[in-house]
Computed example of a mutant assay.
Amino acid sequence: MQFDVDWLLLALAPVFLACIGWEAWHLARTRPGATLYSWPDTLCNAALALMHQGADKLAWLVAIPVYAYVYRHWRLVSWQPGIGAWLALFVAQDLLYYVFHRASHRVRWLWAAHVVHHSSERLNFSTAFRQSLMYPVAGMWVFWIPLAVLGFPPMQIVGIVLVNLAFQFFVHTQTVGKLGWLEYMFNTPSMHRVHHARNAQYIDRNYAGVLAIWDRLFGSYVEEDAHEPPVYGIVKPLDTYNPLKASFHEWLAMARDCSRMPDWRSRLAALFAPPDWCARRDAAHAETGLAAIRTYVSENNTEGDIGSRKT
């Protein structure tokens, strides 16, 4: 049940790169002109991955002592090493990942970090590298504290988080179709294509890490429809390959929205309500203002139409 984190990453790095190389070659041969890979997009993904790894290394310096403190003082269980303990850790972390991932789509503070992963209009293996250096600031590491309460040591927590994320690399592809009965058990490329799509019927669905059961259990599962191909990216396209802009554009937008709010309640909502809260608020205020204009004009306009008042 012990994980050597550094060796895990070292072993998987060439596997990931080989998959990217194979996929780019395969797509160029089988789907010429499809532009599912582009150098600017792939290089942006690589830069974001390096920035994310650097931020993660620093974050673990803070998170691991926190996990250790909770483990020493507040753990509820002391596990005996073995397959049972490993399975318990795997399932518990995967459930917590689902909670984190769903929250990252419904809480703007978390979305400000997670939006980086969704901002590419392509989906391929390199998209899995498209991560945010701001995850530690957003608080991703906080979601794993319950694992320490459940009696799992800090390095096991770090290890299982990395195993979960490593698995997810393989679902970022358009080269694999549906996988039959596996679709009912595991996160698959088909299931994850839905998650990355911005189509109305797909948006904010399929939050699975490894196991598909959580989406089915909590009502967030949607099947990929052959008649509705996924359209990738975010509702407001990023339109840049600059990794710094990709990392910080939503934080800046959130700060602007927060600063223009009239009271502390709406400022908190601008930070922690769903990501579209400010847009819906602005639309509602605009509609209220338009309704007031219509009421005023109709009361002073015998024709009853805005702008048709006779002089």
Rank of each mutant, 00 (worst) to 15 (best):
W181D: 05
T240H: 05
W79D: 08
V210T: 12
W109Q: 03
A68R: 03
I83N: 07
L244M: 12
L17S: 10
L179W: 01
Y221A: 05
M185E: 02
V66K: 06
W7L: 13
T302P: 11
H26D: 12
V91T: 08
N301K: 07
G151D: 04
Q80K: 13
R260G: 13
Y67N: 06
D94R: 00
L96K: 00
L162S: 12
M155A: 12
L217A: 13
W79G: 06
L96G: 09
D263N: 15
A24F: 09
W141P: 01
F129L: 15
C44Q: 15
M254T: 08
F3L: 06
R122C: 06
A68P: 09
G177K: 09
R75M: 04
L61A: 14
T302D: 13
R75L: 02
P40D: 01
W79E: 06
W111E: 01
V231I: 14
A200R: 11
L8D: 04
V231N: 14
L110N: 02
R256K: 15
F90G: 07
L271G: 00
T127Y: 00
A253L: 11
Q156F: 04
L133V: 12
Q80G: 15
A112N: 12
A208I: 08
L50C: 09
V171F: 00
L89N: 04
S266P: 01
C19N: 09
D263R: 07
L50K: 09
E303D: 15
I20N: 01
V222M: 07
W7S: 12
L147S: 03
V176W: 00
E228Y: 08
N187S: 05
P136H: 04
W109C: 03
P153Y: 05
V194R: 02
T240S: 14
R29S: 10
L217R: 05
S132Y: 00
A200N: 08
F129S: 08
R106K: 13
A55H: 04
R102E: 05
D282N: 09
A88M: 07
V231P: 05
F100S: 10
M254Y: 02
T42H: 07
